[in-house]
Design a protein around this nucleic acid. Structure first.
Lengths: 247, 247
DNA sequence: CGGTCTCTTGAGCAGAGTCAATGAACGTGG
DNA sequence: CCACGTTCATTGACTCTGCTCAAGAGACCG
C-alpha cells in the first residue's frame, strides 16, 4: 500500500515517462526528488509576475492558468494547466517570472525545489530530455494559440479550445470520451480566447444549437467529437503525444 | 586573423554567453561543435511542418520567421528570428516539426547536427543552461504575442511588434537607436499580427502621421521611442535580457 | 431571504475585414 | 536603356464580426 507521498511521485514518474523513455535509475532519481504537497482555493496565485520562483509546482488535481494583464487591465489567459502539468518549467532557468499563475479550481499540487530539478536535469540525461520535451510541448501549444487567436474566428476558436482540452484531459487520464468538464466561466473562456464573455456566450449557444456540445452550467460536454474537430480545424499533431515510444 | 568558420562560432559563443555564465571549457566545447555554413534566398523553407529535423540552424545574418497555415489557407506568423537566434531549439527534442520556418530575407546561417547539440546539453551544465534559457525566452515571447493578438488593438499591436523588434535588434547588435529596418511587407506584418495588410497600411500611416515612425518603402524607422513604447504598452521584461549576469 | 456571481439576451456601434481599383518601385530581358 | 510584368503600397466604399452597454434571469451561499 502506498502513502500519499508515493502516489504523488508515481504521477510525476508517469508524466516524465510519457515525455521520454526512462530507465529504472531515472525513475529512482525522480522518486528521490524532495517534494511537498499543498492545496489551495480557486483564484489563489501560485506565481506572480516579477517574482523569483524557488520551487517548481506539479499539479496533482484541479486546474490552473497562466495569465498576463495589460495596462488597461484587460486580462489574457495564455495557457491552461491540468493534472500532470508542471507549472514552472517555463521559469526553471529564468530569474523572474514574466506572468502570473492562478488556480482555476481548488488545486492539489506538489512543490519541488528548483535546484533539485536542475540537478536532475544535469545528472540524468533521459530525465533531462523528458523535461525538455515537456517545455517544448508547452511552447508548441503557445504557437497554436497564436494561430487560433490570430487567424480563426470565434466559432473556430471556441471549438479549438474545447478540442484541445478534451484531448489533453483524455491523455492525462482525467476524462473519458466526450466527457469534458471544463470548469471555466464564460468570462475566463473569453480571456483565454481573446473574446468578450458576451460573445463566448453566443458562440456556445450556437454550438449547442447545432448539436456539437451540450451545456449545463459550467459543464460543457462534447456530443459530436468529429463534428467539433471539423469546425475547429483541430489536429492534435502540435501536442506531440508520441514522444516516448522507441524511435 | 580568423577564418569564416571561427567568426561564425564566435557568434554562437557570444549568444550562449548572453544566456548564461560560461567558463572557458564551455566555450571550448561550443567552438568544437561541428557546423556548416549555408546561404539561402528569401522565402526558402528551412523547416517544414511534419519533417524530422536532424540539424539545428543558427542565424548569422538576415531574418526568418516561423509560420503555420490554417485549413482555409490563411497564414499566421508565430515568431520572428534575427541574427543570433536558433531556429530549431524549439524542435531539438521533438520528433516532428509542428510548424514551418521560412527565410524572410537572404539568409546566412550555420547548421549544427542535433546530436552534437544534445551532447553539449548533457555534458556541459552551463551550456545546457544557456540552451534552456534561450528556449524559455522564446516561449516567453510566444506568450507576449498571445497577449498582443488577444487583447491589444491594431495600433497597439503594430507598435508593440516594432518595439520588440527594435529591442531585440539592438541587443543582437544589428541596430542602433531608432534605426530599425524591419524588412517585412505589410502582408507579412499582417500575418504576424493577426491583421489584414490593408489595415496594417492604415495603422502605419496613422503612426507616421502622429510622428512616431517614418516610413520609406519597406524601412520603418522609429522617431519617437518613448512615444511608441507608450502607445504599445511595451515593457521589455518578457525578453529576459539579464540572464547572464552573476546572481 | 437577500446578496453576489454568472449567464442570457437585445440594441446599437465600431474596429477591422473585404473588394476593387490605382499607382509606385523593381527586375529583367531584349 | 526602355518596355513590360510583377509585386507592394495605397485608398475608397461598403460590410460584418465581435464589442459595448444595459437590463433581467438563474443559481448558489451564508
Amino acid at each position: 500500500m502506498m502513502g500519499d507521498q508515493e502516489v504523488h511521485q508515481e504521477l510525476l514518474v508517469a508524466k516524465l515517462a510519457s515525455r521520454a523513455l526512462l530507465d529504472d535509475d531515472d525513475r529512482a532519481a525522480i522518486r528521490a526528488l524532495p517534494c511537498q504537497g499543498k492545496t489551495v482555493d480557486p483564484a489563489t496565485y501560485l506565481v506572480r509576475e516579477g517574482s523569483e520562483p524557488q520551487r517548481c509546482q506539479f499539479i496533482l488535481s484541479g486546474y490552473a492558468y497562466r495569465q498576463k494583464l495589460t495596462r488597461e487591465g484587460s486580462r489574457q489567459i495564455v495557457a491552461l494547466m491540468i493534472p500532470g502539468d508542471f507549472v514552472d518549467l517555463q521559469q526553471m532557468f529564468l530569474r523572474r517570472s514574466d506572468h502570473n499563475v492562478q488556480a482555476l479550481t481548488r488545486l492539489h499540487y506538489i512543490e519541488i525545489p528548483i535546484v533539485a530539478l536542475r540537478k536532475l536535469a544535469t545528472t540524468r540525461p533521459n530525465a533531462s530530455r523528458a523535461l525538455w520535451v515537456d517545455a517544448l510541448v508547452d511552447a508548441s501549444i503557445f504557437r497554436e494559440w497564436i494561430v487560433s487567436i490570430g487567424r480563426r474566428d470565434a466559432r473556430e476558436r471556441v471549438s479549438h479550445l474545447l478540442c484541445e482540452f478534451a484531448v489533453r484531459a483524455r491523455t492525462a487520464g482525467i476524462a473519458f470520451d466526450g466527457d469534458c468538464a471544463l470548469p471555466m466561466t464564460q468570462e475566463q473562456l473569453g480571456d483565454a480566447l481573446g473574446l468578450t464573455p458576451v460573445h463566448v456566450n453566443r458562440v456556445l449557444k450556437a454550438l449547442a444549437a447545432d448539436g456539437f456540445i451540450e451545456r449545463n452550467r459550467r459543464q460543457i460536454t462534447i456530443l459530436d467529437w468529429n463534428g467539433l474537430r471539423n469546425v475547429a480545424d483541430f489536429n492534435d499533431r502540435y501536442l506531440h503525444l508520441d514522444q516516448a515510444s522507441p524511435e
